[in-house]
Design a protein around this nucleic acid. Structure first.
Length: 203
DNA sequence: CGTCCAGGTCTAC
DNA sequence: GGTAGACCTGGACGC
């Protein structure tokens, strides 16, 4: 769940001594993921267009109807879209969740094969995720990090102002933010996230 | 009690 | 190809 089989040494080794992220060489950058890709995508879906408190509420409700465990796609389909609205209170996201569960169940899409460690290619994973209903630029970038692809930047209503505050500006365009992190190459997204969450790490 | 909007996305121009 | 409008929900706010 911390993707310890993913080798971050290329990222660490490329950090110069004067890099603001030099501190991360001690093993930082491990994001907490779910046991399954399906669960990671569902949780990501539950984080779109709502406060983080709402995300936690929706996920808790899903676990409740899963009898204490995160519901399988079969379980989701058994419940149906209406129950996801009335019991999980996930609103319009229910439709996207049902669509995802259907594609996972009928074998149309092998979600586990989307992992970087499974040999998936970044462009294809981005395209596959982006084709899912309810997965726009934010959700795709967020899911990519959890799948082991660290290039995309997670740009949303929390990261944008948070980054602007860190660099002491009122705001900064997405294009400018991407330029700021382009030098990290395949680890630009991870570098962005570490920059935003440095104060989450005990000194 | 009404309005706004949050760790966005889809659809219709 | 770029952009308003609509969209579930429930806390946070103003009045």
């Amino acid at each position: 769940m911390f993707a310890l089989d993913a080798d971050l040494s290329p990222f660490y080794n490329a950090l110069a001594e004067n890099d603001p992220l030099y501190w991360a060489r001690n093993g930082a950058g491990r994001l907490l993921a779910a046991p399954s890709v399906f669960e990671d995508l569902v949780r990501t879906l539950c984080s779109t267009n709502c406060a983080f408190s709402a995300t936690r509420r929706m996920v808790a409700a899903l676990v409740r109807i899963g009898d204490g465990a995160f519901p399988t796609p079969q379980r989701i389909l058994g419940l149906g879209e209406e129950a996801l609205v009335t019991e999980v209170r996930m609103g319009y996201r229910a439709r996207s969740l049902v669509a995802l569960a259907e594609r996972d169940c009928n074998g149309e899409l092998d979600l586990e094969s989307l992992r970087a460690t499974a040999g998936a290619r970044e462009e294809e994973v981005a395209a596959a995720l982006g084709a899912l209903h309810g997965f726009g630029p934010y959700a795709v970038a967020h899911a990519m990090q959890l799948l082991g692809f660290y290039r995309p930047l997670i740009l949303d209503s929390w990261t944008r102002p948070t980054y602007a505050r860190i660099i002491g500006k009122r705001s900064r365009s997405d294009a400018a933010i991407r330029r700021d992190f382009a030098r990290y190459g395949a680890y630009a997204g991870l570098a962005f996230w570490l920059t935003l969450t440095k104060d989450w790490v005990p000194a």
